[in-house]
Design a protein around this nucleic acid. Structure first.
Length: 305
DNA sequence: AAACCATACAACCGCGATTCA
DNA sequence: CTGAATCGCGGTTGTATGGTT
């Protein structure tokens, strides 16, 4: 279906509008209405395309446009509507008299989106942020690499092995942080579960947190994750990050800090502290909740926190 | 004072939807 | 019914402005 690109017509002015052009446009529309936008520029004596005129009128010159900063109430309305409607700026604008879709869109990109991110919310889903599913493919790829490496213990590429192990440690930390974020976000619930059950439960919760995305369908990779979270057996490990989320001792099983039962938590934060990281939070009564100590390399802490 | 950077917002562009001959 | 013309939306870019180094 062919279309003539109206704005490509040569000789037509582009760029910022002058007060004289504004005046011509306003006077013409007040007198005749806009009618056909395509025909308007010629009739109004403007050297612009109709599309440019329509945009200038609807976004700037219309008499019912409310100018000035958005009020906190307006911002809240936009946030509420965006969580329901998504990027349907014109639909959102219909609920805010005097505001244009363009103005709302700009506000979103310059302020509201950043505000949500800073508050730890995903600006698209309006739910607590977690990069779990973003990181999952890399996590699984690293797992495969790890398994491959372990199945060829004779390989003597020491540097490569170290690199892979470090990457794995980084992925573990990233995954761990996702869990913390999720616990923080769901802190009104008490979980009574053990290590992998916690992961499984949180994973399913995260799945339900992404209605508009496409999380991996086959999320039941608990076995893979379980083996992935086994501590590396190589002697090289001491040169890598020490993720003390493993039970040190006979079983060497992965240990999440979410010992059962988990109290409702608030103010969860992870801070870089010397050689490792400290996690602080409060329970529902505002008293500090004691987390297991996590030791990690500065390199990884500075990268991920 | 100049260069650089970040931010805000007006304007443009491409494309799907709708209208109309 | 068909396809060209037009409209309107959402994503993106360009530029002015203010702040920082």
């Amino acid at each position: 279906m062919g279309r003539s690109p109206c704005c490509d017509e040569h000789g037509l002015k582009k760029g910022p509008w002058t007060p004289e052009e504004d005046q011509k446009l306003v006077q013409y529309i007040q007198k005749h209405g806009h009618g056909s936008w395509r025909a308007l520029p010629k009739l109004a004596g403007l050297n612009r395309c109709g599309k440019s005129c329509r945009l200038r009128w609807t976004n700037y010159l219309r008499p019912d446009i409310k100018r000035g900063n958005f009020s906190p109430e307006e911002e809240q309305t936009i946030l509420n509507l965006h969580s329901i409607l998504g990027n349907k700026w014109s639909a959102i604008a219909m609920h805010l008299p005097g505001r244009t879709d363009n103005e709302i869109k700009n506000l979103w990109h310059t302020h509201l989106k950043k505000k949500l991110i800073q508050m730890g919310f995903d600006p698209m889903t309006h739910r607590p942020r977690t990069d779990f599913f973003t990181a999952l493919p890399q996590l699984l790829a690293l797992l495969q690499l790890h398994q491959l490496m372990n199945s060829h213990p004779q390989d003597d590429d020491h540097a490569a092995r170290l690199q892979v192990l470090e990457a794995i440690q980084a992925a573990k930390l990233q995954y761990f942080q996702c869990l913390i974020q999720s616990v923080s976000a769901t802190s009104n619930n008490c979980y009574n579960c053990s290590d992998l059950e916690t992961i499984s439960l949180l994973s399913s919760q995260m799945t339900s947190s992404f209605p508009s995305h496409n999380p991996p369908q086959n999320i039941d990779s608990s076995n893979q994750l379980a083996s992935f979270f086994e501590p590396p057996e190589s002697n090289d490990t001491k040169q890598c990050s020490n993720f003390s989320g493993f039970n040190q001792g006979e079983n060497n099983k992965p240990r999440t800090p979410f010992a059962s039962p988990l109290p409702p938590l608030t103010d969860v934060s992870v801070a870089n502290q010397g050689d490792g990281c400290s996690i602080t939070s409060c329970d529902g009564n505002g008293t500090p909740f004691c987390w297991p100590e996590i030791m990690l390399d500065d390199q990884f802490m500075s990268e991920f926190i």
